[in-house]
Design a protein around this nucleic acid. Structure first.
Length: 218
DNA sequence: GACCAGGCACATC
DNA sequence: GATGTGCATGGT
């Protein structure tokens, strides 16, 4: 199985990259902006997140100190388009508090010296940040080779019999990371591609017949 | 108007 | 440990 899993994972990646090309995902200006986006996109379409981010950017609020000093209610109001705005405002505040206590003024560069596994644990300790949000932050904001699992990844992996229906987050992540070389750029691209193909072909209205992954371990 | 979207914490059994 | 529920807007 392990040998086969490796081949399937590689073939999925190759086909997606050839079909779609590089995704240039999350072209955020700063690491902080990516972290904010990671929280705002929880169970939410990215289009709505963009509106919320635009609201913040427009007023120069995509900066640590600006966000930190913003009232909870004001923050909630700005991010309203992304949904769950009261909840997410509190989660953002929890994230900012964490960043602030880890390094003065939330200087994210200071995280660069930390080991990935301990950094992951630390972020997971923040209220409102679960495995997917944390791994997205690690992969896209902090440049750590961590494989992100989301609903689309789950569906695609399940469709191609790489996992069981009841698989846990950690199991799916291990499957990917145990069989793929540790490669930051590849992990970033792979996740983006999975989201793309998941949206277009593996969602509620699946279009398996014309899917670029058709035939792989069907 | 129903259904969905790049989750997570918490209550209850 | 498994299962259910609240959180909320905007697009299809």
């Amino acid at each position: 199985m392990t040998r086969k899993a490796k081949q399937i994972l590689e073939e999925i990646f190759e086909r997606l990259l050839e079909y779609y090309g590089p995704q240039h995902w999350w072209p955020a200006e700063t690491a902080l902006e990516m972290m904010v986006g990671a929280v705002l996109t929880q169970n939410t379409a990215w289009k709505n997140v963009e509106k919320a981010l635009a609201n913040l950017r427009q007023e120069g609020l995509l900066a640590f100190e600006a966000l930190q000093s913003l009232e909870l209610e004001a923050l909630a109001d700005k991010i309203r388009p992304s949904g769950y705005y009261n909840l997410k405002a509190r989660r953002l505040k929890a994230l900012l508090d964490f960043l602030g206590q880890e390094s003065p003024l939330g200087k994210i560069e200071l995280f660069k010296s930390k080991e990935t596994s301990s950094l992951r644990k630390a972020f997971l300790g923040v209220w409102g940040l679960g495995p997917e949000t944390v791994d997205s932050i690690l992969l896209y904001a902090l440049d750590r080779p961590v494989f992100v699992i989301d609903q689309y990844t789950y569906r695609v992996f399940l469709r191609h019999h790489l996992i069981a229906e009841e698989s846990s987050y950690e199991e799916m992540q291990s499957l990917a990371m145990d069989h793929l070389p540790e490669d930051l750029k590849k992990y970033q691209e792979y996740h983006a591609l999975l989201v793309r193909v998941g949206k277009e072909y593996c969602g509620p209205k699946a279009r398996c017949e014309s899917c670029p992954l058709k035939g792989i371990n069907w």
